[in-house]
Write a protein that binds this DNA or RNA. Structure first.
Length: 647
RNA sequence: GCUGCUGUAGCUCAGAGGUAGAGCACUCCCUUGGUAAGGGAGAGGUCGAGAGUUCGAUUCUCUCCAGCAGCACCA
């Protein structure tokens, strides 16, 4: 019989008969290893314990603690759930059930909707299947047999899946006891390897078959699964923590904003929330001024002619707020749209008056209020809204200037993110998509310019293959928040198309007209969304300079009222946002209320403080308090109240 | 937009085919209390909107609106 050589991670190599399985390999080394091992990797490829090995390879044996082990656990939970569902409702058709970041989902086709109560029944059934310790085995079938089998079973989605399997790839049928599913594998060896106390079904929702809107919707049941009960509990705690940070909840608790039916997707900013907004905007404005930008402001309601010229009318009409005006003496109604973006208007400003090559690069910025008719299902608090303001900017430059302007922008953006408390962020470079305009040479040049700019600024980048706009590549700046979630905020996009469409030009050194390139760029993106991110990142406990109410001066007895007002005046004179709380309430009550409201500093004043002209300072999140002279506290807080760019 | 769920006082929620309740918040009174809720009284709701069934609907049915989760979308 032919022999194969398997090389282990420690460099040792052993001979085995061809067709040996990883299970046999593990067994040949030690029984305990065989017991522990749940899967293998062969030359980096995931390998089932029961798949025969026919060629020389580097092999690693993986236990449940490994990445592969966890993936197998989640993957088999998907199958076990599908089996449970079909056991409970045999008419249900199965589709696909992939592993996700925290567990899995499985999409089903069934006329009746699954209810929340059904989930409990499914969980119970799953536990039965796990306890039954059913063996999991693979068979490789021919395409014809597999299709015939699923047609006979009345599983049309599986038939469609088989058609999608590339020619030459094995078609594997998995058996969990007497239940069977099409799956590329690999899998565990028996359902008993699943941790029955480390999973939870999370919910039911709709999902399109392969994301295709034109196809009927399936029902998706999602679950989370971990190696053990502790990991599951940690995950559920994480979800609770995330819920506590929810900006919609904190927005209410901190009295920042509200939204209501009459204006879906638009924000009613309350004084506290608007303070965050203006402080942030003032900060960005100072940064832009220093960064060599000119600030402009352009109209909200613009005739459709401009949107037709820019190309937006054709592509995004359905997502624009259209305003028809019945003008006197006019034959037809004038059709306008609320601006969904600022760039066409910025080109109008650029086009007004002749521009020289000496004017370039021209960095034009606007806190541009835009309106987009977002689909109702997309709305989410202040994170995804229909009315928002961007820290929008367009850099008009020559192609030769793209690289240096991009580098300058990355430096600009990194300074802002650092000031706002985001140290962890990364860059994605989106390259040419399949459907595109422009020559290959120009794509080569612009993609290289963006990549070089990143390196020059000292940053690595990931490539998002084919994710660029049809007219040019882009950079996306993704920041990671305090609990590890990613948010794409900043962007820089190369656009030679819009200047072309809107006929922007400048006079070159040679005296002839030339076409500039536009770089669309934003750092925070939408203020609404970014403030939502700030709130969630800091769990409401914003850095002092961003906090809407920085100090509350709370009296312990009414004897301190006059002094409290004096203290508030002193703080305000030092540029601190302070207010007095002289209500007839106990200090405990006031401390609790303002702590819940996330006020970073509380100054408590009683008879002693009045007497000594001191204040008792309690910082948010700390237990005790410090009694200090008023001017000392004023100096300490004034330093923190200063925005980072002015320190 | 699609699937499912939800919509009762400012907030969190209970309730039932016979026209509503709690806690917190709010107002007033008592209390002047040392760092996360002192006590008492009071006020507050066309039960998301419209239509239908019914002697009678906030409760049942339908349509619409909004919110939530996911999908799709995000120039």
């Amino acid at each position: 019989m032919a022999e194969i050589t398997l090389t282990f991670p420690d460099g040792n190599a052993r001979q085995y008969p061809a067709g040996t399985t990883p299970a046999e390999v593990a067994g040949s080394i030690s029984p305990s290893l065989a017991k522990r091992t749940v899967g293998a990797r062969l030359d980096g490829q995931d390998w089932d314990m029961a798949w025969p090995i026919h060629e020389d390879a580097a092999i690693t044996l993986e236990d449940a603690k490994s990445d592969l082990g966890l993936e197998l656990i989640r993957h088999d939970f998907a199958h076990v759930m599908a089996k449970a569902v079909q056991a409970l409702w045999p008419e249900t058709k199965v589709t696909i059930g992939p592993v996700t970041e925290t567990g899995w989902f499985y999409d089903f086709d069934r006329a009746e909707p699954f209810t929340t109560e059904d989930l409990a029944a499914i969980e119970a059934k799953m536990k039965q299947i796990i306890n039954a310790n059913e063996p999991i085995r693979t068979e490789v079938w021919s395409r014809e047999d597999a299709i015939a089998h699923y047609e006979a079973q009345g599983e049309p989605f599986k038939v469609e899946l088989i058609a999608r399997i590339p020619e030459g790839a094995p078609i594997r049928m998995y058996w969990h006891g007497d239940w069977q599913d099409l799956c590329r594998g690999p899998h565990l060896s028996h359902t008993g390897q699943l941790p029955a106390d480390a999973f939870k079904l999370m919910g039911v929702s709709g999902a399109y078959w392969f994301g295709d809107v034109t196809r009927p919707q399936l029902q998706r049941i999602t679950g989370v699964a971990f190696r053990n009960r502790e990991d599951l509990k940690a995950h559920l705690t994480f979800l609770e923590e995330a819920a506590k940070r929810d900006h919609r909840r904190l927005g209410r608790e901190m009295d920042l904003f509200h939204m209501q039916e009459e204006a879906p997707g638009q924000v009613f900013w309350h004084p506290n929330g608007w303070r965050i907004y203006t402080v942030l905007q003032d900060y960005i404005r100072r940064r832009q001024d220093r960064g060599g930008y000119v600030e402009v402001n352009t109209p909200q309601v613009v005739n459709r002619k401009l949107w037709e010229a820019s190309g937006h009318w054709d592509n995004y009409q359905d997502h624009m707020f259209i305003v028809e005006v019945d003008e006197e003496h006019a034959r037809e109604k004038t059709v306008n749209a609320l601006k969904p973006m600022n760039c066409p208007c910025h080109v109008q400003v650029f086009n007004h008056g002749l521009k020289s090559y000496r004017d370039l690069p021209l960095r034009m910025a606007e806190f541009g209020s835009c309106a987009r008719y977002e689909p109702s299902g997309a709305l989410h608090g202040i994170m995804r809204v229909r009315g928002f303001t961007q820290d929008d900017g367009h850099i008009f430059c020559t192609e030769a200037q793209i690289e240096s302007e991009t580098k300058t922008f990355i430096d600009f953006l990194s300074g802002i993110y650092a000031d706002l408390g985001f140290e962890g962020w990364r860059i994605k470079l989106s390259t040419r998509p399949e459907k595109r305009i422009g020559s290959e040479e120009s794509w080569d040049r612009t993609e290289a310019a963006l990549g070089n700019a990143c390196k020059a600024a000292g940053y690595d980048y990931e490539i998002s293959e084919g994710e660029g706009a049809f007219y040019g590549p882009k950079l996306e700046f993704v920041l990671t928040d305090a609990i590890g979630r990613d948010w794409q905020c900043g962007t820089l996009q190369v656009d030679p198309n819009l200047p072309e469409r809107l006929d922007a030009s400048f006079i070159g050194q040679d005296g002839a007209k030339h076409r500039p390139v536009m770089l669309h760029r934003a750092v925070v993106g939408s203020f609404e969304r970014f403030i939502g991110i700030l709130i969630e990142n800091w769990a409401g406990k914003l850095p002092f300079w961003l906090a809407p109410r920085q100090v509350v001066v709370a009296t312990i007895t009414s004897e301190a009222d006059a002094y409290a007002h004096e203290v508030v005046e002193a703080l305000r004179a030092a540029g601190i946002r302070a207010e007095a709380d002289t209500r007839n309430e106990k200090i405990n009550y006031k401390v609790r209320e303002h702590s819940v409201g996330k006020v970073p500093a509380i100054l408590a004043l009683g008879a002693r403080e009045v007497e000594e002209r001191t204040v008792s300072l309690r910082r948010l999140g700390e237990q005790g308090s410090r009694t200090l002279p008023l001017d000392e506290v004023t100096a300490e807080l004034a330093a923190e109240a200063t925005p980072p760019d002015l320190r």
